[in-house]
Amino acid sequence: MRHIRWLRRSCLFPLSGLLGLLWLTPAPPVLSAPHLEDRIVAVVNSDLIMLSDVKRELAPEQERLRKQHQGDELAQRLKMAEYMALTKMIERRLQLQEAKNKGVDVSDQEVKQALQQMKQQGEQVDETDPFTFRNVRDQLTLLRVVDREVRNNVMVGEAEMKRYYKEHQTRFALPEEYTLSQILIRPRPADGTAEALEKARIALADLKRGEKFEDVAVRYSDGPNASRGGRLGLVRQGELMPAIERAIAPLVPGGISDIVETAEGFHIVRVDERTPKQFRPFEEVKFEIQGLVFQQKSEDVFQSWLVNLKNKAYIEIKF
């Protein structure tokens, strides 16, 4: 049975109850009293979390929030950020403790190599700063313990990949393709919109009387492919202007659109060929699916592992 025992100005309870308590209990402004000296704000098993640790963790988010919000909205978001920062720190301490218990370690040389890589990638890092050194060591340790305790235990079978492919097939769809021809009539001069529209109507009327599209295009079109009968060639769904895409959506091969107005002028479009939407075959996307399923399963296993760590731990929060 979950229990909460109040000890003066602190509370001792299973960590599995931490999130609920943080969100449901009004919290004093831990970070809003700059006159307070550094002190313990939480005990995670045998580890201490200091007020200065929380301030350092929260500083970038505080800066971001102060640029975007103000007044009551800012105060509310800062309080929420405090809860999230403390929760994140507690979870990180639990994982680092588990790494120590399992004998997972990172050498000084590995930390130095990681710092060098960060510098080569353009990051500003101070290798002499003890906090930076410790933070990089912690990050490497977290990666290593999660690899060992979570990712190494995740397997992805063929049946799972096929099920994912079936349930998310639209993710592997190829865009529909068209072979198009067009007649484009541009207003000339800029105030000649009415004349251009009338010219487009005449062209459309000629097509409805049965004249060949290519002949009408040569006669009327201002498009770059007019001399070739207006042939545009192959285009994929999504590459066309939205108005034209909508106009040709219901057309079968050989179908001709009505007049479509865009910023370029007036278009009459013929669908010469149409390749319906297809799907990449399973064998082609198999390794992509394996990565997606592995990532999904890893997250599920990680959350279960983290919950187990919380259920075994006790935390004392000192307000």
Rank of each mutant, 00 (worst) to 15 (best):
A27Q: 12
E198M: 13
Y314M: 11
H267R: 08
V235G: 01
E110P: 15
G192S: 05
S107D: 00
N135M: 13
Q70G: 13
Q121D: 13
T262D: 03
T179E: 14
Q116I: 12
E198Q: 15
V293Y: 01
A33F: 09
E214I: 07
F213R: 05
E37P: 15
G223H: 07
R280C: 00
Q124L: 15
L232E: 08
L12K: 13
N311C: 06
A217E: 04
F213W: 01
L140S: 04
F266G: 09
R144P: 01
L292E: 09
S107T: 08
L48S: 01
D108E: 13
A159L: 10
V30Q: 01
V271Y: 01
Q121L: 15
H168D: 00
H69S: 07
R270P: 05
Q95D: 00
V136N: 01
F294P: 04
I202R: 14
R8Y: 03
E195D: 14
I49V: 10
P281S: 03
V44G: 00
Q303L: 15
E316D: 10
F131V: 14
K67Q: 11
K55M: 11
P189C: 02
T25F: 10
R188K: 13
Y220A: 09
L31C: 06
P26W: 00
L78Q: 11
V156S: 12
P26V: 01
D191T: 14
F213Q: 05
R93V: 03
V269K: 03
L18Q: 04
R219V: 04
V30H: 00
E127M: 14
R188N: 08
G229A: 03
L22E: 02
R231C: 06
K88E: 10
G122V: 06
G103V: 05
A196F: 03
G255D: 04
H3T: 10
A203Q: 07
E198R: 15
T25N: 04
E63A: 15
V301R: 15
Q124T: 13
S10D: 03
I244F: 04
D72Y: 10
N135F: 12
D147K: 15
Q109N: 09
F302Q: 10
M1Q: 06
I315Q: 02
A159I: 07
F302M: 12
L7K: 12
Q237W: 08
G230F: 05
L115N: 06
S257Q: 07
L309C: 07
V146P: 04
R209H: 03
R163Y: 00
E149K: 09
K199S: 11
K318S: 00
E284T: 11
P253D: 01
N225W: 09
L306C: 01
P276L: 08
Q303P: 14
R171F: 08
P34E: 06
M241C: 04
K112D: 08
K119W: 00
D272L: 15
R186K: 14
Q303V: 09
L74A: 05
A247I: 02
L7S: 10
G291Q: 13
T141C: 13
R9Y: 09
I268S: 07
